[in-house]
Design a binder for these strands. Structure first.
Length: 557
RNA sequence: UUCGGCAUGGUGUAAUUGGUAGCACGACAGAUUCUGGUUCUGUUAGUCAAGGUUCAAGUCCUUGUGCCGAAACCA
């Protein structure tokens, strides 16, 4: 990457290195709270932090910001580690927890008290909030603000010893109750919580707040650039204040805009609502923007990395279009997916002049863009399935597929011509009778005649049956969170975001498809075996993303 | 309300820090094609507004407007 085309974060780091700051050392960290599942927004942060480390020859730590025992759980720790690994990043031996620093953090709090820069406040939550005041006028100082250093120390020790009830005391920094930045009006550093922590157990009953833990954790790990999202801009003065008062290594906090994608919601709280209300099957529902959900859907780590590269990093809080995510996905899948034929909405075709009982194997190319993917044989016989959408009794102009009297090519097989249509009592087409031209075996006519359409097919006698799940946006509105017309994101849920097709007919080689392997079903899209619901006798495929479909687009107009 | 951040085609993101507004996605059109896929080519459209400084402003200054964030014993 040339220096002039770097994003603003990398520009800062480049300048720091050039200036010899930290002797040119670059060390970042990805600091998730283990209170939920990672989503594509976190992937942006992961790619940024680990990516910067790679590019600048530095390191990136994985640190769990686990300072709130009420919300966190080890279950999430393991999932998050797996997600980061899956995305392709390695923290090597640098797996850390803020809870590992609880003792150091406490010692530093003592130091602050001794310096007269922190005090124990015995007001209630409400009193503290009221005292902080509103922007525009200064807050009022706590009546406990001027306790002596000794008294503060005594109270802090007894807080730690568990002598007090939750909510009776907190430790506050003594900064400035008139500060324009409300976060500087004596922020809370420690609160009493008589709750077991998922890692430290019963060892502590006071826990540091984010503001007291985060910067110091960065400092302990010698992080040079502490990259976080925009909502922490207001915290930076406090981040800096703590480090300066403690006279410890001082990382630089840099804030960037979090990721938003249209037709999607990204907050943990809202995603949790989707799960709890049953709008999705769980955190790993293939429609969810969670990394586990996207993995199950068939996204590749490379596509997500590419996406993060494409969207860039800035301070503008915009909304990206889903089409970019789909573009990078198709781009990656197109390269690595073997082609197969599958009929998702089957209609029967009988070839009147093809001998009964006969079958033959025809050669098909696995990936036209990659010769090394080789070829495979596909069985052919008198009775086939084709896609219902590939036949129309009364076709519009520019329709290239099968219709009465029309000739099309069956991919890698023969030219066929529609002779007759059989309908049921309801007038629904149930079978199409065609003739085939034996001279076109393989798909080319010796007389050089052309057909406009090529369609996919599956031999009825050889097909395997499967369920195929097709997904669409979870929300109809591109900006479900806008709050317009008093609607919430739940009012914009797309009722048709999942379409299950039960009697799909697949070419037999798909019987042994394994999870994790992407396939392109020709003319339909990219698919993968569902890792949760598919079983040997009961195949289930997910449509990761459809192929671009310019015919469908033309039809809409 | 106060404080803070941000503003470039439909969307997102660049512009050697004052010197030809570029890239990607999308949309549209065409070429190629045994996938209406892929690939290739072309078209489209932008500096929030008003002043100012300057030979020259997306970039600097002033004012305004709009959007976002914060005012948790969450992170």
């Amino acid at each position: 990457m040339s220096e002039s085309n770097q994003d603003f974060v990398r520009q800062i780091i480049t300048a720091d290195c050039a200036a010899g700051k930290h002797d040119g050392r670059v060390h970042t960290r990805f600091p998730p709270e283990p209170n939920g599942y990672l989503h594509i927004g976190h992937a942006k942060s992961i790619c940024l932090n680990f990516g910067i480390a790679q590019e600048f020859g530095g390191k990136c730590n994985l640190r769990f910001d686990d300072t709130n025992p009420e919300k966190e759980d080890v279950e999430y720790v393991e999932c998050i580690k797996e997600d980061v690994r899956w995305l392709g990043f390695d923290w090597e031996d640098r797996l850390f927890f803020a809870s590992d620093y609880f003792q150091q953090l406490f010692d530093w709090a003592v130091k602050l008290v001794e310096k007269g820069k922190a005090y124990v406040d015995s007001q209630s939550v409400e009193e503290i909030r009221k005292g902080r005041g509103m922007g525009g006028s200064p807050g009022v100082e706590s009546p406990y603000r001027d306790r002596s250093s000794d008294e503060n120390l005594d109270l802090l020790m007894r807080m730690k010893a568990g002598e007090f009830e939750e909510g009776s005391h907190v430790l506050r920094a003594k900064i400035d109750m008139a500060a324009e930045n409300l976060l500087l009006r004596d922020p809370v550093l420690y609160r009493i919580r008589k709750v077991a922590h998922h890692r430290t157990g019963e060892a502590w009953c006071i826990y540091p707040t984010y503001d007291w833990a985060h910067g110091q954790s960065d400092s302990i790990e010698n992080i040079t650039h502490s990259v976080c999202t925009l909502e922490f801009v207001n915290h930076r003065p406090l981040y800096d204040w703590c480090l300066e008062e403690l006279e410890v290594f001082h990382p630089q906090q840099i804030e960037f805009a979090r990721l938003n994608i249209n037709h999607m919601v990204m907050s943990k709280r809202k995603l949790l609502q989707m799960v709890e209300a049953g709008h999705v099957s769980g955190w790993d529902d293939p429609r969810m923007p969670t990394l586990i959900g996207m993995r199950r859907r068939g996204f590749t780590p490379a596509a997500i990395r590419k996406f993060c590269e494409h969207i860039g990093v800035a301070k503008f809080n915009g909304v990206h279009e889903m089409s970019l995510l789909e573009f990078v996905l198709r781009e990656d899948l197109n390269k690595c997916s073997e082609r197969r034929m599958a009929v998702v909405d089957p209609i029967k075709v009988t070839l009147s002049n093809y001998p009964e009982g006969k079958s033959e194997d025809l050669e098909a190319i696995n990936n036209p863009g990659d010769e090394s993917a080789g070829k495979r044989m596909v069985p052919f016989s008198r009775q086939l399935y084709i896609e219902r959408a590939d036949f129309m009794e009364d076709p519009p102009k520019k329709y290239f597929r099968l219709a009465p009297g029309r000739e099309v090519r069956l991919r890698y097989a023969y030219f066929i011509t529609c002779q007759e249509v059989i309908k049921d009592d309801a007038g629904e087409v149930v079978e199409i009778i065609c003739s085939y031209d034996p001279a076109t075996r393989g798909g080319d006519a010796p007389d050089g005649r052309k057909v406009k359409g090529t369609i996919h097919w599956v031999s009825a006698a050889h097909a395997v049956t499967a369920e195929v799940r097709e997904y669409d946006h979870l929300f109809n509105d591109p900006n479900p969170d806008s709050g317009e017309d008093g609607k919430t994101f739940l009012d914009h849920i797309n009722p048709d975001s999942l379409r299950t097709r039960r009697d799909c007919q697949l070419e037999p080689s798909l019987e042994n498809a394994t999870p994790g392997q992407p396939y392109q079903f020709e003319r339909l899209g990219y698919f993968c075996v569902d890792s949760a619901d598919s079983a040997p006798g009961r195949l289930v495929f997910n449509r990761t993303v459809g192929l671009r479909d310019s015919w469908a687009k033309k039809q809409k107009k």
